[in-house]
Amino acid sequence: MYSERRNMKIPEIAEIIKAEICTKNYDPTIEIYSACSADLMSDVMAFSKSNALLLTGLINPQVIRTAEMMDIKAVIFARGKKPLESMIEMAEEKGIVLMATDYPLFVASGKLYKNGIHGRGE
């Protein structure tokens, strides 16, 4: 039932967790290798993988800031939280994709894991 670890592109990720892509003009060829789910930003910064995705229940500008520092390519806000316009602008400026899903953090993480994005990337 579980997929082998594999890379995934943004449109496929959005489809699996029924997410809305909030930022414009993202690069659909970006490949995501690994993911991290956290609400505390220092926990995110203790995680060092390339081409990563961040799933979080937290919604504030520091999430985007943390993603920038960590070279995180995309952020998924769980449980129906929607980023403010100012956060979307900030993310677009930094080339970070923002997505919003109605699934809770655990469920969104589980669906992606099951489909092949594991915590460990390259």
């Binding site: 609400d39 505390l40 930003m41 220092s42 926990d43 910064m45 203790a46 979080t56 937290l58 504030n60 520091q62 999430v63 943390t66």
Partner: peptide, 13 residues
């Protein structure tokens, strides 16, 4: 902590 800080990992990071 509600803002996402205060994990106590900062100095070690």
């Amino acid at each position: 902590r509600e803002m996402g800080f205060g994990a106590g990992m900062g100095l070690s990071n």
